[in-house]
Design a protein around this nucleic acid. Structure first.
Lengths: 106, 106
DNA sequence: CCGTATCCCCTAGGATACTG
DNA sequence: CAGTATCCTAGGGGATACGG
């Protein structure tokens, strides 16, 4: 019996990525950004029912996880764009697999 | 335009699978069951810190999503075994991809 | 236009105790 | 062994209002 193995394998931390993935709206935000880069308001109006406060919180969490990146463009007026990072793009692809899985077993 | 529809459902569904995937401990439970079928107590003791009440709730949700199946074996004493369904096995594999993704970008 | 702060309610989930 | 019942609190998330 390898107690050390059991410890290291199953006492793992509650990873931040799961925390944010499980949050409401995350899934919709990622799917939207997978299709197109977008500004805050574009996301908010595209996803019906999503409150600005929640979007704000969620984008910050996704940034921390390096799933989404925030770019300020120095135009006039300056605009802010959100897009998926490379990690985020890969993640979105995996998420689609889960969607596909669900529809297959529906 | 059906405003009533928008009001009642926010137009886009919050899929049950995401709800349970995002819950704490779900990830650990799935990983454990991917390695071996197990009884209630085996799962609980293997995963450090997981309360019985939470495990109970989680297993029920996972059953509803057809991710985990519950089998009562008619021995004496009768035992209850939890295992991944085919859907659950596929899901576990996808989840591993996310883990792999995380470690790759860590 | 691009958000953040605040308030408030409701549910998740941990501790504990108890049943078949 | 295999759970369920209860209680309690911490945080998610919606509405609203406000700052840059």
């Amino acid at each position: 019996m390898k107690e050390s193995l059991i410890e290291t394998t199953y006492s793992t931390e509650w990873s931040g990525i799961w925390q944010v993935l499980g949050c409401k709206w995350t899934f919709h935000i990622l799917r939207f950004l997978a299709v197109q880069d977008a500004q805050f308001n574009q996301i908010q109006t595209a996803i019906d029912g999503l409150p600005a406060s929640t979007l704000s919180t969620r984008l910050k969490a996704l940034e921390e996880e390096r799933i989404v990146s925030r770019t300020v463009e120095d135009s006039s007026p300056p605009t802010v764009e959100y897009s998926l990072t490379e990690k985020g793009t890969e993640l979105a692809a995996i998420i689609e697999q889960i969607e596909e899985l669900e529809s297959r077993y529906a």
